[in-house]
Amino acid sequence: MTDTDLAQTARENADAVDTTAPIKMTARDVHVYYGATHAIKGVSIDIDMDHVTAFIGPSGCGKSTFLRTMNRMNDTIAAARVEGQITLDGEDIYAPSMDVVQLRARVGMVFQKPNPFPKSIYENVAYGPRIHGLAASKADMDQIVERSLKRAGLWEEVKDRLTDSGTAMSGGQQQRLCIARAIAVDPEVILMDEPCSALDPIATAKIEELIHELRGNYAIVIVTHNMQQAARVSQRTAFFHLGNLVEYGVTSDIFTNPREERTKDYITGRYG
């Protein structure tokens, strides 16, 4: 895809932007350290409810690190330290009173490599709702599993083999199963860390179509190295470089008329 094609794709997606969309998450002056390494440097950003936000930038620029701060996944790394403030509906997610288990139910994560549990398809989806007590009966759980698999565009493919292992599915199906697992607990935000990087083009297209269908039901943030993908699926784009948030705005503006020279250089392939 040429620069002109990339800009055209971004423009075609621009009509989906609502400048009055409600803010779901905010970050203010966020710094992340891994020991002595300063990985994220003073990032401030608003994530709204009605749009897909893409984080782009070269490898090692901090986009995945920052994504992990949004549901406290960095808590699992002993050397990690986060400074600044991140809020969900105005509530500081790093406050001592925040229940991290509940936070991760509200802010779900889909990882780069599909990671279904070594359980049946049904049990993969039912796992979260069971832990959080979201189903009062087997019939309720059946309904949650069916609804989640339908939202993930997977129901018709698996409805007759729900007892089969989730790990026996194709890579694309496994990733959609992981998305179904994430949405089964009714999250408010879905974080996707390069969800298509391990998939073939056909499976990638299905995931991108799914992202379009889910938009508006959840605040969605996707990390991607693929600028064409960012142009196709997102309405807002944030460009990271060396731990800094260089530029953030409407996707069509970022790809057609970036304000920062570093953004322009990256988009036109001069580095990265």
Rank of each mutant, 00 (worst) to 15 (best):
T2L: 09
D3L: 14
T4N: 10
T4Y: 03
D5E: 15
A10D: 08
R11P: 00
R11L: 13
R11M: 10
R11F: 01
N13S: 11
N13C: 04
D15S: 14
A16Y: 03
V17L: 13
D18G: 01
I23L: 11
M25H: 09
R28Y: 06
D29I: 09
V30W: 07
H31D: 15
H31T: 00
V32N: 01
V32I: 08
Y34K: 14
A36N: 13
G42C: 11
V43I: 11
V43T: 02
S44R: 05
I45K: 04
I47E: 03
I47Q: 04
M49P: 00
M49L: 06
H51V: 13
T53A: 07
T53H: 15
G57R: 06
P58G: 03
S59G: 04
G60I: 05
G62R: 06
K63L: 06
F66Y: 05
L67H: 01
R68A: 02
N71M: 11
M73F: 05
N74G: 04
T76Y: 12
A79N: 02
A79L: 10
R81E: 10
E83Q: 13
E83I: 03
G84V: 02
Q85D: 08
I86K: 12
T87Q: 14
Y94V: 12
S97C: 01
M98E: 02
V100R: 09
V101K: 14
L103S: 06
A105H: 07
A105M: 14
F111P: 08
K113A: 11
P116C: 03
P116H: 07
F117I: 14
F117H: 11
P118H: 10
P118A: 10
S120L: 11
I121L: 11
E123G: 06
N124G: 13
G128N: 08
G128E: 12
R130A: 13
R130N: 14
I131M: 15
G133K: 10
L134Q: 14
A135G: 10
S137L: 14
A139I: 05
D140E: 15
M141K: 06
L149M: 08
K150Y: 01
R151N: 11
L154S: 06
E156H: 09
V158C: 04
D160P: 06
L162G: 07
T163K: 15
G166A: 10
T167I: 14
G172N: 13
G172H: 07
I179C: 05
R181S: 05
A182T: 14
A184G: 05
E188D: 11
L191S: 01
M192G: 05
P195L: 06
A198E: 04
D200W: 03
P201Y: 00
I202H: 09
I202E: 13
A203K: 09
I207T: 07
I207A: 02
I207D: 04
H212T: 03
G216T: 04
A219G: 11
A219C: 12
I222P: 09
T224F: 09
H225T: 12
Q228S: 12
V233G: 02
V233H: 08
S234M: 09
A238D: 03
F239K: 12
F240E: 13
H241G: 00
N244C: 01
L245W: 07
E247S: 06
S252K: 00
I254R: 11
N257E: 13
R259V: 08
E260L: 08
E260N: 14
E261Q: 15
R262D: 04
T263N: 10
K264M: 08
G269C: 07
R270P: 00
R270C: 01
G272P: 05
